[in-house]
Nucleic acid binder design. Structure first.
Length: 382
DNA sequence: ACTCTGACTCAAGACGTT
DNA sequence: CTAATTGAGTCAGAGT
DNA sequence: AACGTCC
């Protein structure tokens, strides 16, 4: 669920933090993208008339490869260099939430099966989209494709959004490219929204700058995190009767959840029983991520024959289409060699209070010269 | 009058040709 | 048994 | 821009 209503809170209280950016101005940007989320969207959206996903002759789904291939190339054509971040194990705190979602999906699965039986394509289409899950195979397919395309990816130990935030914080990338607002709660200095369908549709890219969010809300990062917990996050319940308006004013007045619990009338607004807000807070402050210094993020030359062998040979793609797509990739790649605009970006000033990782900050500049680090390729780490 | 809940809805990609 | 979106929007109804 | 198609 991300953070419930956070985008509206920001729009209302810190409008200066939102900036519409023409896609052209994004040229040269490196961006961290949540791969599992992208795959999920492709599996839902890339379908044919009857509501079935695209498949090869063996019946293996190809919708996600389709989407990943063309979207990635489109980004490159705009000078945007993505690094994909794959989810690891969800934190234990999320299991309650996930269980609830599982129950919902069972209902949708039954409904989809029933609709398929009776040939009700309309309802089959509707319900089958709610039964989509991203499997290990989907993830592995995409990793294989990305590797062949020369596009880096990272396997996060836990939440991809948290890993994206760390990459942006460290300066390895300019921003996290996501629709998920809790990337901000994880501390990304810049969040780029509507990045994916900005060119295809007429929607502009929207950049959200964390420092300006805090400025507009008049909060420290720690206060912001507590506010996000009050708004409602994936890790624990929130206090009934406290919505966006009261959450903002309570944090402004009392500064943290402990004080709010002291001062708040617990008859009117009882806190959830055994409320693990402190553990949730800790997940946001110090999420389980791989340190940016340990990650080598490099864009390499695509292996055209490898991509053709995989997509055409194994997955039944049209060879002409694939080759011309790869040609686009090669062309834009040689054109942009070292993205320029991104290098002028200065990391946003670090908000007060955060516990870990205070030292790096200057490595955005420092990293440009040196490129050694561990093992040859970009993946690794788990 | 304002605020919040909860139940509900919807939409979700990209290419190439026309 | 290896998967568990999300955001945005509307509405009525109730609590403050 | 709309549309059929991609696999």
């Amino acid at each position: 669920m991300g953070i419930h209503g956070l985008s509206k809170v920001i729009a209302d209280n810190a409008p200066a933090a939102l900036k519409e950016v023409p896609i052209k101005a994004c040229f040269g940007r490196k961006v961290a993208v949540d791969a599992s989320m992208s795959i999920y969207q492709f599996l839902i959206a890339v379908r044919q008339q009857d509501g079935m996903q695209l498949t090869n002759e063996a019946g293996e789904t190809t919708s996600h490869l389709m989407g990943m291939l063309y979207r990635t190339i489109r980004m490159f054509e705009n000078g945007i260099k993505p690094v994909y971040v794959f989810d690891g194990k969800p934190p234990d705190m999320k299991s309650n939430e996930l269980k609830k979602r599982g129950v919902k999906r069972e209902g949708a699965e039954k409904a989809a099966a029933a609709a398929e039986e009776t040939g009700d394509t309309e309802n089959f289409d509707k319900f089958s989209r709610r039964t989509v899950k991203v499997t290990k195979e989907h993830n592995d397919d995409c990793k294989k494709l990305l590797k062949l395309m020369g596009v880096p990816y990272i396997e996060a130990p836990c939440e991809a959004e948290a890993q994206c935030a760390i990459l942006a914080k460290s300066g390895k990338v300019y921003a996290a490219g996501s629709e998920d607002m809790d990337t901000l709660t994880f501390g990304t200095p810049v969040l780029m929204r509507h990045l994916t369908f900005s060119e295809a549709r007429k929607m502009p890219v929207v950049e959200i700058e964390l420092a300006k969010v805090l400025e507009g809300l008049e909060m420290t990062m720690d206060q912001f995190i507590d506010m996000c917990i009050l708004l409602g996050c994936d890790y624990c319940d929130s206090i009934k009767g406290i919505g966006p308006t009261r959450a903002v004013s309570l944090i402004k007045e009392h500064k943290n959840i402990e004080t709010i619990l002291e001062k708040l009338d617990s008859k009117k607004y009882p806190a959830p029983e055994d409320w693990p807000y402190q553990a949730a807070r800790e997940l946001f402050r110090a999420p389980n991520v791989t340190k940016a210094e340990e990650l080598d993020v490099k864009w390499e030359a695509p292996d055209e024959e490898g991509v053709v062998a995989y997509l055409v040979g194994e997955k039944g793609f049209n060879e002409d289409r694939v080759r011309s797509a790869i040609q686009k990739l090669i062309k834009t790649r040689t054109g942009t060699t070292q993205g320029r605009l991104g290098d002028y970006f200065k990391p946003v000033e670090k908000p007060a209070g955060s516990t870990s990782a205070a030292k790096r900050k200057m490595d955005a500049k420092a990293a440009s010269g040196s490129a050694k680090k561990k093992g040859g390729s970009f993946m690794k780490k788990k």
